[in-house]
Design a protein around this nucleic acid. Structure first.
Lengths: 190, 190, 190, 190
DNA sequence: GATGAATGAGCATTCATTCAT
DNA sequence: AATGAATGAATGCTCATTCAT
């Protein structure tokens, strides 16, 4: 008759939070933030509306938590690549990005919709900027190591291209993403 | 107190429609479709809510009309380019796109947000696809005329790049859009 | 087919606002602010929930408007008494207060519940204080004119008594309010 | 690991009940019954929500228990005064009331808010009435013993006055409660 | 005796849409 | 053609209450 132990509670909390965040990510990606109701998230997650508000103060808080979570995740991925040779890193960024778009389309949809109208959700604008800069710096360093004349511009170039591929994949049926990947890899001789 | 002539009425009608569409475009671009209320459009346009429903059956109808309007406009622009030399056409597409993004940012925001989550507004998905194909075909023809080995893939390539530039410009402060434009022009030797 | 004239709209607006305020006053008095739902006010007023929000920004705004309205009304009543002889004024305050409590019990309930827990609705605290001071000054002036030694204290005295009578009338069945009125009038030789 | 003895359990139970009731009294007085959440009481009392429901069937039950508790307490106080001389009793009622208002303001706030809108909590209405009558009878007896012509009316009179003082003290900054106390004591030659 | 995760009915509020004028 | 008062379904959120542990 004793209450749950702290560890048990913590475990339950983490699972439920993750469940909510994951479900929200799916929904936000598919239907957009504004078109996703909290009730819908609850139903999809198999829990009650009230429980969502037990873990998150508001719908917007879910969005922000989700965003932070994804940012942290991407940081982790980037750090892993840090030690390899620049050519290898570049290749990994390209193939990793393409693979990510293909497997985590909803995540990309979600992040892109935030990027397109950053003013919609205040607070996120800055974080988005920081996140972009981080990626840009990493790529710039690679192109510096590869002795490109304008490493920063080259970073923007490939960044734009990868973003454009994402958009195309999300918006167009039968988008030749794999061929474009090959093309870009060949261009950089990877 | 004489009634307005038919021509006057028609003129007023067209002006009011355009006014609504233009105001909606601004709002949809800045705040997003879901975050824009019909009341807000009415206030910004300086007319009453009722009048909006006199011209459009629903809020979604405004969105669709706006979309069609923009599609028609872009068709017109593309047709104008049709007769020139392929190199000239390509240059115009690139510089025109960049200029459009810079001057009509809200329009681009609007179109991009539709592209990212096409499922949000049914019906539009197909039109979006058709529109994309039109542009792709035009670019493919150019690259064919320029004797590229894989003209279609090249079209996708430059399309992705231009889309990526748009995204970057919308989401990033101090985005080097002009330098990227120069870079791509140089790449195609234009 | 022309829209309503401005005067017509103004008239409709005032009527509807008054209707809402009056209904809210009844409800707040009987059930208390927190126990009164906006839906209930709408139903009682014979209008839709939405219309209430067309006229008032929030439920709390109704409360504040109502409070301001009642304060203005009481100012008007007090000004009317201003010109008479002090004895007459005192008599009028006493009989007027008693009559008000008896006929406008819900108004008194409403105002008293605000007075008891002023912290519940921020903003109102100051106004309540101002209102009290106004009444106190008026009564003090009367007792000064009547050459009482401690006019201010006497004002507080009769104020407390009248407030106490209100409370008693609201809370107790068969409360002898009329006899108490006679007693106090006799006390002041009125 | 030996189980607690029965006496220990009983003691803990009573302490916890008292803790809940006391915390609730503070909260109800400050914020009002409707604006006080069970969660808030639990947090303030330093216990869990569940435990509150272990001791009380519902939030309303807390209110009722609290009310009963306060009524019993006041009965005890009144009984203590029973044996003294009527003048002494009257003095004690006056000074005791004033002191109570000053030290137990939240309790008075709570009781007054119940009195103002008795319909809010059914069931309590009768008890409130009974309670009032008890006090009235006691005061009436005093004034009878003091040979007042209308002892009951005099009881209502002083009752109203003391209630009015309470209200004033709760609602007004710098309320001259002590001077009013002196004034009333002098009036009754105490 | 004690905890807090979980539920869901209920409420304030918004907003697309209608309609009388 | 034009207005804006009016509607009500839908949504975010709160909170008393339950229950597994």
């Amino acid at each position: 008759m004793s209450p749950r132990s702290k560890e048990e509670n913590l475990k339950i909390q983490q699972q439920t939070r993750q469940n909510i965040l994951f479900t929200a990510l799916q929904a936000f990606g598919e239907k957009g933030y504004a078109n996703t109701t909290v009730s819908y998230i609850a139903k999809e997650a198999g829990i009650s509306k009230g429980l969502i508000y037990h873990y998150f103060e508001s719908k917007e808080e879910i969005l922000k938590s989700l965003f932070h979570f994804l940012v942290e995740m991407s940081k982790g991925i980037m750090n892993d690549a840090q030690e390899k040779a620049p050519q290898e890193q570049l290749k990994q960024i390209i193939t990793g990005s393409v693979a990510f778009v293909k497997t985590q389309t909803n995540t990309v949809r979600f992040m892109t919709s935030l990027a397109v109208q950053p003013a919609v959700i205040a607070d996120i604008e800055d974080l988005l900027e920081t996140q972009k800069e981080l990626l840009m710096t990493a790529m710039k360093n690679i192109f510096e190591a590869l002795a490109y004349e304008q490493p920063e511009l080259e970073a923007y170039h490939i960044g734009a291209f990868l973003d454009g591929i994402s958009l195309g994949y999300m918006a167009t049926k039968d988008y030749p993403i794999d061929q474009l990947e090959q093309k870009i890899l060949k261009h950089y001789k990877l």
